[in-house]
Design a protein around this nucleic acid. Structure first.
Length: 155
DNA sequence: GCCAACGTTGGC
DNA sequence: GCCAACGTTGGC
């Protein structure tokens, strides 16, 4: 039983176009520094899970691509790189604190914007739309996944 | 740039 | 274990 996820990326860091341009359209999802998001990757994600690629902190936030989980969780190397913005001096090599998965973009979509998502009654319970939500990785229910695919094709 | 909301830290 | 202070996220 596959799971579905929404994963946020700042396009100024890694946009969907950046990901598509990478070898095999696959990028390591570096920089997750939140325990809940890490635990999703570690405990629940499986290779092949569906991913909604979301652009955050930009002019037009929204879902911009369909992707898949392309690896199991493994150590995020940037936590040990002193010159990285994701450096974590508290993480030890023999007990890494942070993990990542590889994400493969399958195709771009039109930008299904945040206002559109908010306007869709069937998406009222989508976690990323909840007030105060800051999680960079959230699970997506199958009915929401389906509704979002339909919304992308519509319009 | 502002600010609401949330997570983390650290003193006690 | 509590909670105030602080830092970060992310939409606007």
């Amino acid at each position: 039983m596959p799971h579905y996820w929404l994963m946020k990326s700042e396009p100024s860091e890694v946009s969907v176009d950046d990901a598509l341009a990478a070898p095999n359209a696959t990028v390591p999802w570096t920089g997750v520094r939140n325990y809940q998001a890490r635990n999703f990757m570690r405990d629940a994600m499986q290779v092949g899970d569906g991913v909604l690629f979301y652009h955050s902190s930009c002019a037009e936030p929204g879902i911009v691509g369909i992707a898949r989980v392309a690896s199991g969780a493994y150590t995020d190397p940037t936590q040990f790189e002193a010159d990285s913005p994701y450096f974590d001096p508290g993480s030890k090599k023999d007990a890494p604190r942070w993990l990542l998965v590889d994400v493969q973009v399958l195709h771009k979509t039109r930008n299904l914007t945040l206002p559109e998502l908010r306007a869709a009654p069937e998406l009222a319970d989508l976690l990323v739309l909840k007030k105060g939500n800051r999680l960079s990785i959230t699970p997506v229910e199958p009915r929401h996944w389906q509704a979002i695919l339909e919304r992308i094709d519509a319009a």
